[in-house]
Design a protein around this nucleic acid. Structure first.
Lengths: 199, 199
DNA sequence: GCCGGTCGATTGACTGGTCAATCAGCCAGT
DNA sequence: ACTGGCTGATTGACCAGTCAATCGACCGGC
């Protein structure tokens, strides 16, 4: 047997970083905090990563690529446009339910921090908006959606609404229980597709 | 003639800070950058403000209180709930049109950075959500809005959609011209009130 | 009208502390 | 005894905030 590291230290560091970043924020965490949380020597962080930023980098890319695949996968199904949007909303909400700390880090430190760190990832972030826009656009072609709203515009509103809900959960502005999560999925789609006014 | 301060240095520092924060982000700007941009000695920043953070503080409070008044003022009018939402959206979009740099700083460094700096201002931010929620709630009572969507929930979606559009303009994800701004105002309200599906 | 004094505004060199990143070596497994 | 994952003390850069000194507007006494 060539390699059998008893514990994957690299993974250990990444997981520790999630916890520490979520707790203190990227800027406020020292590299030693990550190492301590991981139960690992300071220098080892630099053995596996070139910098503190690369750790965050890795966390973002790992999860965001899943989101991108999920959206594009969904788009390839035969579901109705509305169902596709529901699937996207569901995926994002479930991501949060499954690993709130990781999603907190990604949203707070990357997605909503496009100025500092997120700038690097603008292309990937933009790609998510575009993919959602495509779902809307196709919906318009089929007559499922009105065509007087620019697809990218609708996409931004839709994604913005979802992200705002996650932020609300992250910062305890709105209640977060399992039923809240499930309701949220339905309600975002309902709000965006049906609108607030009665039909 | 008693007093004629040749220039209000304090204001000069605040305006410089807007420009520098917008350009480099809060964390990346040194206090000396602000002083240089303002054409003022380093130490003077500390004469008028207790810390770099207090400068950002001041900028946020100054503008956010205007937003809060605008929302609450609007709510007191006799307009329809939908018109009230349109007024809120209009105010925010116009704030951006009028002073994009200041709005960029407020959104990027405070509103969407509730982890680090924004934490201090969560109460004021929350109050904006609540005020919008009240508009929705009253709309429901009058039968103008469906009542199967929690008001605070609708409020978050609405505000989230708007803020996402501003982010899109800030980071060049979506086009930003005067007509785009005007369209945006209408379209957010249309999306949220009427929904994407044809009526 | 002139002088000395007061006080707030203004200046910028300096300090203390913080951390990211480096590196010289240790040691477990083979 | 060699290799490479692993260690953690050290270093060097950076910067927020301090402070002692200067400036200049105004005032009151003579």
């Amino acid at each position: 047997m060539a390699k059998a590291p008893p514990v994957d230290k690299r993974r250990q560091i990444l997981d520790a970083a999630i916890r520490v970043f979520a707790r203190q924020g990227f800027h406020a965490t020292r590299v030693s905090d990550i190492a301590d949380e991981a139960g690992v020597a300071y220098g080892l962080v630099y053995h596996y990563f070139r910098s503190k930023e690369e750790v965050l980098n890795e966390l973002f890319v790992e999860r965001w690529s899943l989101l991108l695949s999920a959206i594009e996968e969904t788009d390839r199904t035969e579901e109705t446009p509305r169902e596709k949007l529901a699937a996207v909303a569901g995926f994002i909400v479930d991501s949060y339910r499954h690993d709130p700390e990781l999603m907190k880090v990604i949203i707070v430190e990357v997605t909503r921090a496009a100025n500092s760190f997120g700038r690097t990832h603008l292309p990937e972030i933009r790609r998510a908006y575009q993919s959602i826009a495509k779902i809307v656009e196709d919906g318009q072609k089929v007559g499922a959606f009105r065509d007087d709203v620019a697809p990218l515009f609708a996409s931004m509103s839709f994604y913005g609404a979802i992200e705002q809900l996650l932020s609300g959960w992250i910062f305890d502005v709105i209640p977060a229980s399992d039923t809240d999560f499930d309701q949220a999925k339905e309600l975002v789609v309902m709000t965006i597709c049906d609108g607030l006014e009665p039909r």
